[in-house]
Design a protein around this nucleic acid. Structure first.
Lengths: 233, 233
DNA sequence: ACATACTTTGACCGCTCAGTCATGGTTTGT
DNA sequence: ACAAACCATGACTGAGCGGTCAAAGTATGT
């Protein structure tokens, strides 16, 4: 699972030049420069606080050149997130297929392994794209306005998938009969926070260790084999 | 635990007028108006995206009046958060005391009850100040720059306390020998996400239900009585 | 009663910003 | 070879913003 390029939000309309040609290569390089510069600045100051001029300057291009490749800041954010969003869609999709097969066979272990495979997929993705993952985690709780709207879209994707997958886990007997929405939210929250801390480079151990704790937490905390000790509220 | 007033960041230097007098009452009302207006706008658009003019306008005062009561936006955010931050400090402090007493008696049940009492304290606080809690949760992951710096300070307070408390839980035998930082992060993450979803009013059940799931998750997922089934990574 | 600090207002000011576009150079397709 | 699209540049434009402050009204302390 190699990282994929950020694509420009805007392309020439009639004569883009041959693939691999001068203009094509130039567009790739410029897009990359802008994306990289923006990502770094966004992580440092937040999406909203960074100006187009600063991004262009940090990328080493003129301000007007920014608009050759992107419509506006939101367009750039969208482009930054798209490779990760696409991979996430793929991961959730593969997990859904594995779950379907496991359910058809009434195979509870295969069910559990589907979720574990998903966790590994997500771990791999975040490790391949740590900075984009961090940006997502940093911004995904903010309101979906302005340049942050693309981030909110990815959050919606993840939320929906977590809910669906949690529902399947419950129906398949992996989780007790607790409120699915609450359970899904707890899992998303815990995993995001762990990833965020790990990816921030705080001498926090690696993502696999964090994932292990998370899976333990879920399987034993919410699974049907839990002890009879129940803490009342 | 009643909610407390937001205090102005700026006060008159020589003749504030008598407590309860015309000017005192006026300052309270204006401060409240500004705080309320700002809070609403911040939740809708994020702290950074809201201008001083918008806050003043929404509060029904002239723009220059904003500066009568607050130095700048960060000052207002600080004032908004202070009552909640103060209560959190109190809650953590009370929990620490209860833990100390339980540890002195080697009383494991009292240890567990200390954490439960903390969860109840935090639930009560968030229910008393839902909008401020939501603002905190929305913004606490962002970089600590500009008007968001006071939010980051509260996040630091919570992170530090969670780590300390998790360490005590581990030493007291409530949690297995997993990495304390990871465990603390998972708990903070899960609880924040749950609170955020509940407080957003998404037909998500109440905070007590969410807290119950969270406590179950922790006590059974990470406690020493966990089943021998271990999911490898 | 009076002097003075407080309060309110909103026009003003200088600065920043997103987006535009004229100009000139480069690449492509015919 | 040539026409035309593409590309880069940065000055320009109008809008928006934070903060200031003169002028006038109000509350307070002596």
């Amino acid at each position: 699972m190699s990282s994929r390029r950020v694509l420009p939000g805007k392309s020439p309309t009639s004569r883009p030049g041959p693939e691999g040609g001068r203009r094509d290569a130039n567009r790739r390089a410029r897009t990359d420069d802008l994306a990289r510069a923006a990502l770094s600045l966004f992580l440092e100051r937040g999406i909203e606080a960074v100006s187009i001029d600063e991004i262009a300057s940090a990328a080493g291009v003129a301000k007007g050149s920014f608009y050759t490749y992107f419509h506006d800041k939101a367009d750039l954010v969208q482009a930054l997130l798209e490779p990760v969003a696409s991979s996430l869609r793929g991961a959730f999709s593969r997990c859904a297929e594995r779950l379907e097969a496991a359910n058809a066979r009434n195979d509870r272990d295969a069910l559990a392994m589907s979720y574990l495979a998903l966790a590994v997929d997500i771990r791999d993705l975040f490790e391949a794209e740590p900075l984009v993952a961090r940006l997502y985690l940093q911004e995904c709780r903010g309101p979906a306005n302005g340049a942050r709207a693309p981030v909110a879209s990815v959050a919606e994707l993840i939320r929906g998938a977590a809910l669906r997958l949690t529902e399947v886990a419950r129906a398949g007997g992996l989780l007790r009969d607790l409120d699915t929405r609450v359970t899904a939210a707890a899992m998303v929250g815990a995993s995001e926070h762990l990833c965020m801390r790990v990816l921030s480079g705080e001498d926090f151990g690696d993502l696999s260790n964090a994932m292990t704790v998370l899976v333990t937490l879920v399987m034993e905390g919410l699974g049907p084999r839990a002890s009879t000790r129940e803490v009342g509220a």
